[in-house]
Design a binder for these strands. Sequence first.
DNA 1: TATAGTGTAATAGTAATCTATTACACTATT
DNA 2: AATAGTGTAATAGATTACTATTACACTATA
Lengths: 125, 125
Amino acid sequence: MKFDDKIPIYYQIKQYIYREIIIEELKPGQQIPAIRQLAVSLTVNVNTIQRALSELIDEGVLVTQRGKGNFVTTNTRTLVKLKNDVVEAQVRELYDQLSALNISPDEMLLYLKTYINSRKEVHHD
Amino acid sequence: MKFDDKIPIYYQIKQYIYREIIIEELKPGQQIPAIRQLAVSLTVNVNTIQRALSELIDEGVLVTQRGKGNFVTTNTRTLVKLKNDVVEAQVRELYDQLSALNISPDEMLLYLKTYINSRKEVHHD
DNA sequence: TATAGTGTAATAGTAATCTATTACACTATT
DNA sequence: AATAGTGTAATAGATTACTATTACACTATA
């Protein structure tokens, strides 16, 4: 996985797990990969994984069972809130940043539409 | 100024100056505040300001004149590119993040519209 | 020429993040 | 009982960012 070197890795791992849960790549109640396994597949230290997970556990997104493993919460309310919060944070970020550039809401929509269209025509992946 | 403690301060200061230039709060050719003045008004160390400015100088956004001060470039091409780059980076960020949540372009537009409307109705500033 | 206002550079100390490593605790299975 | 697979905890070292501080270089002006 490629990390942004301007943002703490443990924090980016939190966001990554949020996403995996939201798209149900990790389903409610499902056991997530073992800490040492995650450390290998993300090529970071176990402690860094542990820091991310312990925050997710504090937030109630994951539930830990000592000796067994870590599991996605089955609490629907928490999971719905998670998706809403993550999406809204992203949208608000764009809104705030473009507002700071004196760009109007209508222009924001136009910029987004234009960007989407530019992705449709040419695919530079 | 309030900084995000997940992102280096010098980097946030760069973004701040980008914005001031884009909205022409700092105009082409204009002298920007002295380094020690910026350090006071942003309540950070002179070295931190210096790090941000030296990168802006390397990028050609600012021009320095030893003993005189720092000035916004008068190069129109650089300034136009700056605005385009900053705006597109923001839009791409939203697009990529929401794509990772399996959200379609149409849904992205809807989310943005909804957020904009929610800002119109109630103003919690 | 002295002084005030600029930018520039270097050093030292602190804090946060990440890595590497070791050790321990709990669970399930052989 | 032993073992393998989990999570948990603690220490030490490297790196980066930030601060504080001091000093120096250039420009303009009194």
